[in-house]
Design a protein around this nucleic acid. Structure first.
Lengths: 220, 220
DNA sequence: ATAGCGAATATTGTATCCTGGGTAGGTGAA
DNA sequence: TTCACCTACCCAGGATACAATATTCGCTAT
C-alpha cells in the first residue's frame, strides 16, 4: 500500500519531517479517516525511531488530523457532513476577517500575488487543467491570509484549509464550479482593491458557502 | 520560583498531566513570556522523564503557548499589543458564530448554564469578589461555546481564551468593567433567548471589543 | 459449534542512553 | 582592554530499552 513515499529526505529534523509526511499522507487520502496509525510502522517506513514520530503525532492531534485514544492508539479522524459544514463556516468567518484586514494592511507584493493567482486560475480554467485550478485556488486563498499580516490568522486558516482538503470534498470537481469560483474570485479581488471591506467580507463568505455547497453536492 | 506545584497527581498518563500542568503554569503567569523552558528541569519538577514532557511541549507549541527553536529549546511565546487585539478579534468572530449556532441548537440545559453564569456573576459583582467575577465570566463564555454544539468551534474557542487569559490582561480589573460586562452579558442572553441571531452576534462582538479595550486600557 | 478463558503477541507509555550542536567562560595575544 | 579562539559543559534530538496494557488467537469445556 506504499503508494506514498514516507521516506525522509532533506528536512532539518526528523520530527518536522515526520509531521509533514504523515500530514501529507492524510491530506492526500493515503491514510483514510478511521484508519489506525501504528507508531512502529510509521517509524520504520520513514527510517527513524518512534520518538520523533510520537512528537509528530502529538501535533497532528492538536491540529485535529488524528484522534488519540490512550493506551490504544491513534486513528485518522473522521468528519460527518455536519462537521464539514462547520469547518467551511468557521473558515468563512476567519477568511472574511482576513479580507478586511488585507484591505488595511496589504502591500503591493500581496496584491501582485492575488493578481497572479487570478491569472493562473484563468489559464488553468481555460485549458481544463483541474489540478492547476485546485492549486491556483489555494494560491488565491493563501494570498488573502498572507495579506492580512496576521501570523495567528494565517496559522488558523492553514490548519482549517488542510482539514477541509483532506476529506477530498473537492468543490472544484463539480461541473461548472471552476468557472463560477473564478468569477467569484474576481469580484472579491475587485472589492479588496476598491477597499470595500464590507463587500469583500460578504463576497468571500458567499464564495465559501458556494464552495461548501458544491463540495457536498459532489461528495456522493 | 516554585510558586506553582508542578507535581503530578491523578491523571491518566504523564504526558497529559505534563501538558495540563505546564499550560496552567503559563496561563497563571508562573512561566512568563520569553522565559526559557528546559525539558530536564520540567521533568524533574514533575517527577517524570523527559519523554512525556517533550510530547506535552509539542502540543503546547501547536496551540501557540510556546515557540520552539530547533537545537536551542522552547520559550514561552510573547505577544505585542497588536497580537492581543488580533486574538480578541478572532475570538469575537468565532464567538459570534457560536452565538448564532447556539440559537439554533441550544437545549434547556445550555440555557440553564447561561442563566447560572449570569446569577453567579451578579452575586460576585455585588460582593466585589473579583476572582469570582473572572470565573463566572469564563463560565458564561464557555456556556455559549458549548451551546453551539460544535466540537470544532469549542476547541478553537478554548485555545483562544486560554491564550488571551495568559497575558493577564484582565479586562475585568478595570474599575467599572465588571458591572458593564454583566450588563452586556444580560443583553446577549436576552438576544439568544429571543432567538435574534443578528443581534446576539453583534452584541457579542461589541462585548468582546469592549473587553479588549478595557484590557488594553488596564495594561498601560 | 461456540463461549469463555488464558497465554502469546503487538503496541503504547515511560525511562534511559548516546550524540552532536550550542553556549558560556576562560585564556592568551594584539 | 578587547577580541579571537578554545574548551568544557549543557541541553535538545534521536535511538534504544524496559514496563504496562490491549489484542489476538488458540485451547478447552459445555
Amino acid at each position: 500500500m506504499d503508494i506514498i513515499d514516507l521516506k525522509i529526505r532533506d528536512y532539518k529534523n526528523a520530527r518536522e519531517a515526520a509531521f509533514e509526511k504523515i500530514k501529507e499522507a492524510i491530506i492526500k487520502g493515503h491514510f483514510k479517516p478511521g484508519e489506525k496509525l501504528v507508531e512502529q510502522t510509521l517509524a520504520q517506513e520513514m527510517g527513524v525511531s518512534r520518538t520523533p514520530v510520537r512528537e509528530a503525532i502529538r501535533r497532528l492531534e492538536a491540529e485535529g488530523f488524528v484522534i488519540s485514544i490512550p493506551r490504544k492508539g491513534v486513528v485518522v479522524s473522521r468528519a460527518d457532513k455536519e462537521e464539514i459544514v462547520q469547518l467551511y463556516s468557521i473558515r468563512a468567518e476567519l477568511e472574511g476577517l482576513a479580507a478586511r484586514w488585507a484591505i488595511e494592511n496589504a502591500d503591493e507584493d500581496d496584491i501582485q500575488k492575488l493578481d497572479e493567482a487570478i491569472s493562473r486560475m484563468e489559464e488553468t480554467v481555460a485549458s481544463g487543467d483541474l489540478d492547476g485550478v485546485v492549486q491556483s485556488n489555494a494560491l488565491f486563498h493563501d494570498a488573502i491570509a498572507q495579506a492580512s499580516k496576521s501570523r495567528i490568522l494565517c496559522t488558523l486558516l492553514k490548519t482549517l484549509q488542510d482539514n477541509i482538503q483532506r476529506f477530498r470534498f473537492q468543490s472544484l470537481h463539480l461541473p461548472g464550479r471552476p468557472e463560477a469560483a473564478l468569477a467569484e474570485h474576481k469580484e472579491i479581488i475587485a472589492a479588496i482593491k476598491e477597499k470595500k471591506a464590507e463587500e469583500a467580507d460578504r463576497l468571500l463568505k458567499e464564495h465559501l458557502q458556494n464552495a461548501c455547497a458544491a463540495a457536498l453536492a459532489h461528495m456522493k
